[in-house]
Design a protein around this nucleic acid. Structure first.
Lengths: 192, 192
DNA sequence: CGTCTATTTGAATGTACTCAAAAGCGGTGG
DNA sequence: CCACCGCTTTTGAGTACATTCAAATAGACG
């Protein structure tokens, strides 16, 4: 399989020698996902962390009332999982599904834990990954709390121009925490 | 000074030998903060990460319109910083102030970076710290987007009963993303 | 071309906000 | 010990932002 992308991703933060590289790749399993295929199911245990080799995934919460809330998405070169479930071995709070034909590389929790023992450098790699994820979420909290819907939408477009093309309006709205109808209104007013 | 609390905090995730312990403590500086004293100023660089030995701190955003948004708080045994500013050496987006007489132990960015070189175990420690912080923020995003104000308030009380006692209503409201007036209304309706 | 889903539009409603004023609650000084 | 000041909390009326529900329109796909 093609471990090119993930190895380049890892190399951004740590250097692996050939043996370590092989060891790491041995832990990965490749999987193809069809459009709308579900990777993680709300209520189930999420026992792997996934690297997106190709395609687009989305994590969302399904409320008792059927309301969807998009928590995160991931495109090529991003990692995605329900970190809460993955780390604590607790039922997942979100669904993760593929928005289009995608290829992912998965690292199982057991291998993840073992990796730190065998190649301690990975502590650094994931430290930086978690750090960035934390900072991203913190910014999102700030925006959510301090800005009105229109500005949140503008920032979203500026920050994730690529992703906006892969999501439909309902999904974008649910990421911003508003209804699709209201987002439609924002968009039409925007232009005037 | 008393490094007891911070060493116990570190020991939750990694084991340090006496030499490492000493090395680590040598990086720390103790500081007492009066009530309302400002530790980090919005716009300035936040060049240290702080461990709360005693007291309560709060990080908040000050909007152009004077509106405050409480981003996070920290009590005894918690770490606090503007991670964005700390990691990227960019101007801080938040203010951090002491809500009461507090004592903190600070680790400078340069020492933080050096620590990883000298005691790689700390990669693990901070990996876990960042991981937990990320999961916490993610849950907060979920709650913010999917729940109405009343439920956010109830969850807040259940999750942080201790902290609720140290914050006033304006601060709690700004953490939940609502006005103090509206929080007041929620509380009175709650009882009926 | 017809069906299914996504988006837009509109009216009625609700949740939360603004502004203003009153009430409560400490702390301080006479 | 009480009176006063400043700050926090409560209450209320009017308003705004965002939602719900329903229906119309537009797009996507077999």
């Amino acid at each position: 399989m093609c471990y090119d992308a993930i190895l380049r991703n890892v190399a951004k933060h740590i250097q692996l020698n050939p043996k370590e590289t092989e060891q790491f790749c041995a832990c990965l399993t490749t999987r193809n996902l069809n459009k709308r295929e579900v990777l993680v199911k709300q209520g189930g245990i999420c026992d792997a962390i996934h690297f997106v080799n190709e395609g687009v995934l989305r994590a969302y919460l399904l409320g008792a009332d059927g309301k969807e809330t998009t928590i995160m998405f991931a495109i090529k070169d991003w990692w995605i999982t329900d970190m809460y479930s993955f780390i604590n071995n607790k039922p997942s709070m979100v669904n993760v599904e593929s928005l289009e034909q995608s290829t992912i590389l998965s690292l199982k929790k057991a291998d993840f834990d073992q990796l730190f023992v065998e190649i301690p450098k990975f502590e650094r790699f994931f430290r930086i990954l978690m750090q960035n994820a934390y900072i991203r979420e913190q910014l999102r909290v700030m925006e959510n709390l301090s800005l009105p819907a229109r500005e949140k939408y503008q920032i979203f477009l500026k920050k994730y121009p690529t992703i906006a093309n892969h999501l439909n309006q309902k999904q974008i709205a649910s990421y911003l925490g508003i209804t699709p109808e209201f987002l439609s209104m924002i968009k039409s007013n925007q232009k005037l």
